[in-house]
C-alpha cells in the first residue's frame, strides 16, 4: 500500500504552516502524528499533493497550567497526555479518555490536535472535549481565534475549522468530578458508544461520541439530571443514531442509554 505522490514540507512555525496552507488550499493536508491521515493516504482514499508537517513546531507539544486551565498543545501525543501528572491530577477525565485510544503504538504518535481535526465520529476525545466545555485554539491567516467545543464538531469528519486554520492547543477547565465510559467496537476498538460526564453539584455535562455522525452534548440528559441517573434514558433524545455491522440503531440506542447511565453513576 503506497500513497500517491506528494510534496512534504516541514513547517518550523505555525505562521509558516498557515501560510503554506493558504497557498496550497485543498491540495494540502496538515500532518501531525499521521495516524488517521497516513492509512487513508495508503488506501488512496485521500490524495493530498502537499503534506505540511507541523510536528516539529516548538511550543505546540507542552502541557501547562495557566490560571484555572490546563492547556494541552495540539501536537501532544496521547501517550504524553496519558503520562502527564498534571492531567492525571487535575483533569483525570482526559487521562481516562486517552487510555481508551488505540494502543501503545498509536498513542505514541497520535495527537490531540490531529484527532480533533480529523473528527472521526467514533473517536474518543470529542465526548470529553464536549463534556469539559474545552476551548479549541486555532490559528489561520486572519490570526488566532478560539472555538467552543459545542461549535466545533459539524458532522462526519467535519469541523468548523476554516480551510486555512490549524489547531494549536486545547484549553480545559480543571475537572474534579468527571469520567469517561466506552463500549469498544471489537475490531477497530473505536467507540461504539463513548460517554463523558462532568459533574458539578447537581448539574452535569454529558458528551457523547460514536452514537451519531456528529459527537454531541446530551442536553436532554443534562436537563433531566438532578442527581438521579434515570436521566440516561434521554441519551438519544432528538439524535439520529448511526447504524453499522456492529451495532444497529436499536442496539446502539440501548448502549447509549446504558453508558450514559453508567457514566452518571460512576
Amino acid at each position: 500500500m503506497i500513497p500517491s505522490k506528494f510534496d512534504y514540507i516541514k513547517a518550523s512555525s505555525i505562521s509558516e504552516a498557515v501560510k503554506l496552507l493558504g497557498k496550497h488550499g485543498y491540495d494540502a493536508k496538515i500532518l501531525s502524528g499521521g495516524h488517521s491521515l497516513i492509512p487513508a493516504m495508503k488506501l488512496r482514499l485521500n490524495r493530498p499533493l502537499v503534506l505540511i508537517d507541523i510536528s516539529g513546531i516548538s511550543g505546540m507539544n507542552t502541557i501547562t497550567e495557566q490560571g484555572g486551565e490546563i492547556i494541552i498543545g495540539a501536537n501532544c501525543t496521547h501517550s504524553q497526555v496519558l503520562k502527564s501528572d498534571l492531567v492525571k491530577n487535575k483533569l483525570n477525565i482526559v487521562t481516562q479518555t486517552v487510555k481508551c485510544i488505540g494502543d501503545i503504538q498509536v498513542r505514541n504518535r497520535g495527537t490531540i490536535g490531529g484527532s480533533l481535526a480529523h473528527a472521526d465520529p467514533s473517536s474518543d476525545y470529542p465526548a470529553t472535549i464536549l463534556a469539559c466545555e474545552a476551548i479549541i485554539e486555532v490559528e489561520g491567516k486572519n490570526g488566532s481565534r478560539t472555538i467552543d467545543a459545542i461549535d466545533f464538531f459539524q458532522g462526519i469528519f467535519t469541523t468548523s475549522l476554516a480551510e486555512d486554520e490549524i489547531i494549536t492547543a486545547v484549553r480545559f477547565p480543571k475537572v474534579i468530578n468527571g469520567n469517561y465510559q466506552k463500549f469498544f467496537q471489537s475490531a477497530s476498538r473505536f467507540a461504539v458508544v463513548g460517554v463523558a460526564v462532568v459533574k458539578d453539584g447537581d448539574s452535569v455535562k454529558v458528551g457523547v461520541t460514536g452514537v451519531s455522525d456528529t459527537p454531541y452534548r446530551a442536553i436532554a440528559v443534562e436537563d433531566a439530571y438532578s442527581g438521579n441517573s434515570d436521566a440516561g434514558s434521554h441519551a438519544i433524545d432528538n439524535i439520529e443514531v448511526m447504524s453499522d455491522h456492529f451495532a444497529d440503531v436499536e442496539y446502539r440506542s440501548h448502549l447509549a442509554k446504558v453508558y450514559v447511565k453508567k457514566a452518571l453513576e460512576a
Binding site: 497516513i38 494502543d103 503504538q105 505514541n108
Partner: peptide, 23 residues
Amino acid sequence: DTSGCGACTITLDGNAVKSCTLL
C-alpha cells in the same frame, strides 16, 4: 500496512511505534 496489526512495530526515540504509519 495500516497500523492494525503491529507486526511493523519498532522503537522511535525509545517509544514503540508502527513503522507502516510513519513516513
